[in-house]
Write a protein that binds this DNA or RNA. Sequence first.
DNA 1: AATGATTGCAACCGCCATCGC
DNA 2: AGCGATGGCGGTTGCAATCAT
Length: 267
Amino acid sequence: MAGPLGWGIVEAGWRKGPWTAEEDKLLIEYVSTHGEGRWNSVARLAGLRRNGKSCRLRWVNYLRPDLKRGQITPHEENIILELHARWGNRWSTIARSLPGRTDNEIKNYWRTHFKKAGKPSQSPEKPKSRAQSRQQQEKKKQPPPQRQQQERQQQQQFDMKKIMSPVEEGDYRLPSMVPSRPEMVFLCPPSEEQVLYSMIHGDSSMPEASSEEGLWGGLWDFYDLHADLDYSNTCATGKAGQNQVIQSIRDISTNSLPSKDGGGLIF
DNA sequence: AATGATTGCAACCGCCATCGC
DNA sequence: AGCGATGGCGGTTGCAATCAT
């Protein structure tokens, strides 16, 4: 929102603040043409007055077509809790285990729903309705572990493969959540179901990129279901803006990229 | 209905790791 | 090996929407 309080200002040639639909469109076009990466080239090649970091963040947290939108499901919530207990504030690590969710999203979710649970000022007997009477489950939260290289490697091995594989640790119940994510299957056209099934059931030989491709086709369908909303908002923030962005993505995927079975972008 | 508190979330900042020269 | 550029990550901020009083 290039509002009256300084948002959207230009600082040292770079625009800051909320993104407009036009900027989103430029960024989407740029990524569809050049792929992700080289973010500092975006300004020059796409005509955006945004720095590379801002572009990357916008793409990763908002524009990526494989993002799941909507509320965190109870299962995802459980995953977040468990992984946070395991990894601490390693949001990107946690996010890797929740396809379609961003580290920013998970971080925000944690902060708003769980972090305050430890605060004595928050009365557990008076949960806000907005928080949907968050379970006062006092999952043991270990302090964030020290960032050591070895641990990073360990956690990366854990990631998706661990989740999608049979339970290997007695206290770890994540694999059971996967079949209970019908939305993933529902979102995908039949031609993609097999890909998802492979993901879900631990075919670790399947490259990550392919898995994402599998998700994409289904997400287009999801977008289709929600793309009939109002586009009138000029700023890409908010529901209308989101749908405008979605429309842009769909336009690009339809007009300038080879379509796949499900009709998705492939970079 | 008005107002203050709370929540949700997009976006920015600073630090650090990695990469290429 | 050293250095600058770039990207990734976690923490934080600011604002709009929503809720409670």
